[in-house]
Amino acid sequence: MKMNNKQPPLSPHLPIYKWRLTMFASIAHRMSGVFLVLTMPMAFWLLLSMSHGKIMYAYGLSWLQSSTGTVLLWLMCVALFYHLINGIRFLLLDIGKTDSREAMKLSAKIVVFSTIIFALVLAVKI
């Protein structure tokens, strides 16, 4: 038998692990958060600038109503809606509510599907 000193392989994890809805809800919270970090300060800045001068208001409004502005606004609202209601879900878990196994799975379903509905409604209404 030959000696073997090589490093043992690490068993596969992320690529083979089956996606569960709660896992998706968690990573979506993180991704929407990162997206909001990039867009929320911008939106806040824009709104302040628009409130400070008529010309800025006109510029801002025409940019918002352009296709880029509209798509970004829609994306931001969807990310915000998701981050907000999943945030409520996490806060409830933090204070020890809805933390049974069934409630954890059900609440993940509720936040994901209500975000899909919100995204569709907003896409029509915007």
């Binding site: 939106a43 806040f44 709104l47 918002l64 502005g69 806060l91």
Partner: peptide, 19 residues
């Protein structure tokens, strides 16, 4: 998060209404 829970919807509402 609790502070933002109440303030962010206002900001987004104002932005959407302005839009």
């Amino acid at each position: 998060a609790v502070f933002l829970l109440f303030s962010i919807p206002v900001l987004m509402g104002v932005l959407l209404l302005t839009y």
